[in-house]
């Protein structure tokens, strides 16, 4: 393995992403957790950039770091936020969680090692956003429209559910 700029950048960004996730689990205040999550999401955008996925990286920043994090912060600030996490009441809870997470990790690692990743992949070095646009809006236009209709339905459904509660 040769050590070049890309490797160092990947290393630093991975540490940032994992560090943000660890902070998310360990911080006490909910607002700090949300900010740690935003940091993790931003670091992941950096990793996308390293993989030549400029568009995906920028959209990750726009949607996740800029949008979802702020939505969460808003939600935290407008609801009960003074709660701090106490110690777990059930002692076997930690053990069960560890078993669950451990088996999930095992399944994921098993899937990754069995996935046919060594097949020939498309050339990514000269990838451009224009190609992405053509692929989405010409080749995959019907799945794209189906997903957008699904999202629209979810949006309208959320509005209807939220309105019902507020009415006397």
């Amino acid at each position: 393995m040769q050590i070049n700029g890309e490797f160092i950048a990947f290393f630093v960004l991975s540490i940032f992403a994992i560090g943000g996730a660890v902070l998310l689990m360990n911080l006490v205040r909910v607002v700090h957790m949300a900010l740690a999550l935003a940091f993790t999401l931003l670091s992941i955008a950096g990793i996308y950039l390293l993989l030549n996925a400029e568009f995906l990286a920028v959209v990750q920043v726009l949607i996740y770091t800029g949008g979802v994090s702020i939505l969460m912060l808003f939600g935290i600030m407008l609801t009960r936020h003074r709660d701090q996490e106490g110690d777990s009441v059930r002692p076997w809870h930690n053990l069960l969680s560890f078993l669950g997470v451990g088996s999930f990790l095992g399944i994921v690692i098993h899937t990754i090692y069995n996935a046919p990743l060594t097949e020939i992949t498309a050339e990514v070095g000269t990838f451009s956003t224009a190609w992405l646009g053509e692929a989405v809006f010409k080749q995959y236009v019907i799945p794209f429209e189906a997903v957008s209709v699904l999202l629209l339905i979810a949006l309208v459904g959320a509005v209807i559910l939220a309105r019902k509660e507020s009415k006397p």
Binding site: L35, F55, V61, L62, G66, I70, T129
Partner: peptide, 22 residues
């Protein structure tokens, strides 16, 4: 000279909002 320069501007500038909120 980013290929997605315009989107980059809009995306990165949205991070400032987190700073103001914080």
């Amino acid at each position: 000279d980013l290929g997605v320069g315009l989107l980059y501007y809009i995306a990165v500038s949205s991070i400032t909002t987190i700073g103001m909120l914080a």
